[in-house]
Computed example of a mutant assay.
Amino acid sequence: MTEALDEYGKYGDGVPSVYETNTHPLDEHKMSLRLKKAIRNLEGACDQLCATLAPPLHTIVNRAQDYYWSCLRVAAQNKIADLLDNTTGGMNLESLAHESGIEPSKLRILMRTLAARHCFQEVKDTGFHGTVYDWMKVNGDRRAVMSSSMPSMNSVMGTLSIIEGYPWEKISTVCDVGCGNGSFVWSLLQKFPQIHVTLFDLHETLEAAKQAAGCLAQELQSHLHFQPGDFFKDSLPKSVDIYYLRNIIHNWPDKDVLTILASIKNVMGPQSRILIHDYTMHSFQNQSPHHSLDQAPWPMLPDFGNGSMRLHYQDLTMLFMYNSKERTLEEVKNLSQNAGLKLEQIRDLGETTVLEFGPA
């Protein structure tokens, strides 16, 4: 680090800010061998430090989900940098989408990802569906692979932190909406055996969950109720304490999310709560001081930049697989309000967030 700073001192102006849009000192000067070696050391050291401190699966998932190169290719092919270079103060999303010919919601995902890697700077916020699930219904082997991968993803994403990060000791009944193979429920009951859980999912998915339930002690298995159903068509159990949705709403476009939330609202009791456990995109516009996400300290990017890169990769994955997206806090709040719900609390779990909603 010291060697790199010393080399920049030779150019007179020091190290420019990552937000600087003027000519970079090294655009006019040849990078010295000393600086080149210093940067190589820093890049290698930072990457190795992260790989050393993070669990191996964390590192592997980050590598596997790296869509950065494809985003950069799309930006280059559509001359995004040229379009922005012809403006002063940037360009709002709608104008940039119009000029580039890219659909706005897809362009937003692409630009967020590239901004997190410092290719651009975000200065302001301004169909078919269900095909993957329909395909998996008739491709049981693929469905099994997806289901079996979820426990490992839970470990990487830290989603089971919710078991330590919520007052489950006060809870008697839970409905795991879209429970998958039930991995969350097994961990929950082992820690809080007083809870009775309804596992709600498609029939073919619940069959796998029933088999996996064998990992529980017999007395805990008696706390399980398996209810096959489709949350677009079938009613959920009434007046449950907690309706838990983990990695659910990011799979669906807005109109379907509204249907899911309204369906749950219709069966909630006065004390029932919905926990939406998912990734939440940062938005720096119109955030209430009481309902906002953690932000990184200056001079880091407010959304932690590369430290939250998996969030952006997930955003792209949702687009590619489901024609959906990860949502900002404001987007989730707006959908919930339209379903007759109000946001009561945010729990930041480091990578994912848990948004708690009650009846409005």
Rank of each mutant, 00 (worst) to 15 (best):
Q221K: 08
Q221D: 00
Q221M: 08
S222D: 06
S222G: 00
H223R: 14
H223V: 11
L224D: 00
L224Y: 06
H225G: 03
H225N: 15
H225I: 12
H225E: 12
H225C: 13
F226C: 02
F226G: 00
P228V: 09
G229W: 06
G229V: 06
G229F: 09
G229E: 08
D230F: 10
D230Q: 13
D230S: 09
D230H: 07
D230G: 05
F231Q: 02
F232W: 07
K233N: 14
K233C: 07
K233E: 15
D234I: 07
D234Y: 06
D234F: 00
D234E: 09
D234L: 05
D234M: 03
S235M: 06
S235V: 04
S235D: 12
L236G: 05
L236D: 02
L236F: 10
L236H: 06
L236M: 12
L236C: 12
P237M: 07
P237Q: 15
P237R: 05
K238V: 12
K238A: 12
K238H: 14
K238F: 11
K238R: 15
K238G: 08
S239W: 05
V240H: 04
V240W: 01
V240A: 05
V240S: 08
D241I: 05
D241C: 10
D241G: 12
Y243L: 10
Y243M: 06
Y244W: 06
Y244E: 05
Y244C: 03
L245C: 14
L245N: 09
L245V: 10
L245A: 11
L245E: 08
R246H: 08
R246D: 02
N247A: 07
N247H: 09
N247G: 09
N247L: 13
I248T: 15
I248G: 13
I248K: 04
I248E: 07
I249L: 15
I249P: 04
H250L: 11
H250M: 12
H250I: 13
N251D: 14
N251E: 15
W252V: 00
P253C: 05
P253V: 09
P253W: 06
D254H: 07
D254V: 04
K255N: 13
D256G: 01
D256T: 04
D256A: 04
D256Q: 10
D256Y: 08
D256F: 11
V257R: 13
L258A: 14
L258F: 03
L258W: 12
L258C: 06
I260S: 00
I260R: 01
I260F: 05
I260W: 00
I260C: 07
L261P: 04
L261A: 05
L261W: 13
A262R: 14
A262Y: 11
A262W: 10
S263D: 13
S263A: 15
I264R: 02
K265E: 11
V267W: 02
V267T: 11
V267I: 10
